[in-house]
Write a protein that binds this DNA or RNA. Structure first.
Length: 586
RNA sequence: GCGCCGAUAGCUCAGCUGGAUAGAGCACCAGGCUUCGAACCUGGGGGUCGGGGGUUCGAAUCCCUCUCGGCGCGCCA
């Protein structure tokens, strides 16, 4: 099955027809060149037809013919195919607008009913093994809203790529060996010592302002808390919990030992619980130390060295990134002998291909993208296909509440966590709001709107209610003893109202939307499409005075119920793709 | 200073890889709805697509430049 932008039998047939006609014109002109891509779009304006092509405009120069004259030839050719095309006319500078034969829209209804929620699933050529790496937050604290956005983005992207017929692995990578985790351990130990009365808490003003002096002791007690320690309340909770469990016996333990391990384990467990609450399940968790233990870090360093990409300077080991076209070299092993994050990251990406992935997608926040070109270039130099390492970047999330932006600071741990916001607005709304903006723009999360239960205002409920209403009609039909129609037993020609045709036309776009969202790595298109479909559906049901689904006319009722089921199938498929529940009633 | 991302209606944002008269939701205004699938429906006002130049049949979209905002430019991750 072919699909993508040209999916759907009607559009596919029309595109093939157009190609044949264009090819014929090229041959007649003695032009043996290859066929250029021909635009075939759904016009913005309904009176510009069901489809519109700019083929005459793009080919006019090549064929040496006036655009409108060429367009006339194309229009005549298209219109001669009576079973497919009802009308084709030339418009504007040389567009050809095409209206399809009404029966073709009715075929569509049957097609959707047959396919059900698998309508829109469309497999693109060869099945690939794809890895999507996302979240990848180090377990130093609860997930921030930036992580939350990334979690939803990565998971939805993974679902989309699965729908395209690929084999997707969701993976979470974290650095558990570096300085950050040591500081985490020290932070917990300091709070533990404070609880024991063996250390003094650092002054609040110095914690808040890094430019102020940091005391080494207060009132005869040492200040154990690191200058750049983690300030969140969860650190105190961890310390208190360790005190409960072990009493004062840990006072002599180093911060980077048991304290670090305990903190990491518990924080990581909480992150996983947060992700579970969002309906996100990772297939694989990978950490930095495992790359150490399997020797892959050393292998990678030596492989880079063998390529002449490594040199020593100032007591450190450097990657000669300038030889790969980048603007500066980077340290990969510090003077202390400890690798920087870059080396394990290169080793990790190399390992992704060694594990058999054919395509690797990294989802990363805007603060992290500086890293990417180095990783890609180095992995490429080691024989990986750099074109198969993709970056999906996203900007940060701001929070608006009561019309004002909520101030947040990661350093001071005064940020709103994913847990808190999900508890406030629910998983469905959270996911919808996080996915409805394009990833490379800022996302302003309007908490007031997210909490609003008015389905007309809250876009997440607006879409869900469009789905629920199809069940409302089904319930009503059951009360009246009307059975749902089977796929073959419907005379779709009874759907003659313009608004019914509009809904059908919207449903036809669904496979295109899936393909485009998946292939361009832009899941927000799915959310927009669902809103547009719901925006056609609500008024149709609302205007029940003029036309009701359930009427005395049995054949008409069956046709309209079939439309209800088709809309339900598409919205259900879309919500599933977004990881959002599709309720039968609100 | 350099790099990446952004700037579209009062607000939050789409705009299908260059198409026709730039769209949606809030908000605002005016009408309508015998509660049925009605926490509703219909219509309306509102724009120098940040500014300027270029490419061409045609630009919100591509190129150059400037302005403003976010992020980054570490032997942190």
């Amino acid at each position: 099955m072919t699909c993508g932008r040209d999916s759907g039998p009607m559009k596919e047939r029309l595109a093939a027809l157009l190609q044949r006609i264009v090819l014929r014109e090229l041959e007649a002109a003695g032009d043996t060149g290859s066929l250029p891509p021909l635009g075939l779009d759904v016009p913005r304006q309904p009176d510009h037809g069901d489809f519109s092509t700019n083929a005459a405009l793009t080919l006019a120069k090549r064929l040496g013919r006036p655009p409108r004259e060429l367009a006339t030839t194309l229009a005549e050719g298209l219109a001669s195919e009576r079973t497919l095309v009802a009308r084709a006319e030339v418009a504007g500078p040389g567009f050809v607008n095409v209206w399809l034969a009404g029966e073709r829209w009715h075929d569509l209804l049957h097609e959707i009913l047959r396919a059900g929620t698998t309508y829109g699933r469309c497999e693109a050529g060869r099945r690939e093994r794809v890895q999507v790496e996302f979240v990848s937050a180090n377990p130093t604290g609860p997930l921030t809203l930036g992580h939350g956005r990334q979690a939803v983005l990565g998971d939805t992207l993974a679902r989309l790529i699965e729908l395209r017929g690929h084999d997707v692995t969701r993976e979470y990578y974290f650095n558990d060996g570096g300085r950050q985790m040591r500081v985490l351990g020290e932070s917990v130990k300091a709070r533990y010592l404070e609880l024991l009365g063996k250390a003094a808490p650092p002054p609040a003003d110095a914690l808040a302002d890094a430019s102020l002096a940091w005391p080494s002791e207060i009132g005869g007690l040492p200040v154990a808390f690191p200058r750049d320690g983690y300030q969140g309340g969860y650190i105190q909770e961890l310390a208190a919990s360790l005190l409960d469990q072990h009493g004062a016996t840990l006072a002599g333990e180093p911060g980077e030992g048991l304290f670090r391990r305990a903190a990491q384990e518990r924080i990581f467990a909480e992150i996983q619980a947060t992700l579970r609450a969002l309906g996100i399940a990772f297939d694989v968790y990978t950490n930095e130390t495992s790359l150490y233990e399997t020797g892959k870090l050393d292998e990678t360093r030596e492989a880079l060295r063998a390529k002449g990409l490594v040199y020593e300077a100032d007591g450190a080991t450097w990657l000669r990134a300038t030889a790969l076209g980048l603007d500066r070299d980077r340290v990969i092993v510090k003077r202390t002998g400890e690798p920087t994050y870059l080396l394990p990251d290169i080793a990790y990406h190399r390992d992704k291909f060694a594990r058999g992935f054919e395509r690797v997608i990294d989802v990363q926040g805007a603060d992290h993208i500086e890293q990417f070109p180095f990783v890609r270039a180095a992995a490429g130099a080691l024989g990986c296909d750099a074109d198969r390492i993709e970056l999906v970047m996203h900007q940060f999330v701001t929070l608006t509440r009561g019309g004002a932006q909520v101030k947040q600071s990661t350093r001071r741990a005064t940020y709103v966590t994913v847990d808190e916001l999900v508890a406030e607005v629910g998983c469905d709304v959270f996911r919808f709001f996080m996915i409805q903006r394009k990833a490379d723009g800022h996302l302003d999360f309007d908490v007031d709107l997210a909490r609003d239960h008015d389905w007309k205002k809250n876009p997440a409920y607006y879409v869900q209610y469009a789905h629920a209403r199809t069940f409302g009609i089904e319930r009503k039909a059951a009360e009246q003893g009307v059975a749902l129609p089977g796929a073959g037993a419907v005379d779709a020609a009874r759907l003659a109202l313009p608004e019914e045709l509009d809904v059908l036309k919207k449903l036809r776009e669904w496979p295109d939307v899936v393909a485009r969202a998946a292939d361009s790595r832009e899941p927000h298109h799915v959310a927009y499409y669902l809103r547009e479909l719901a925006a056609l559906w609500h008024p149709y049901l609302q205007d029940g005075v003029r036309h009701r689904v359930l009427s005395d006319d049995a054949a008409l009722t069956a046709a309209r119920l079939a439309l209800v089921l088709a809309v339900r199938a598409v919205i259900a498929a879309g919500l599933a793709l977004l990881g959002i529940s599709a309720p039968e009633q609100m």
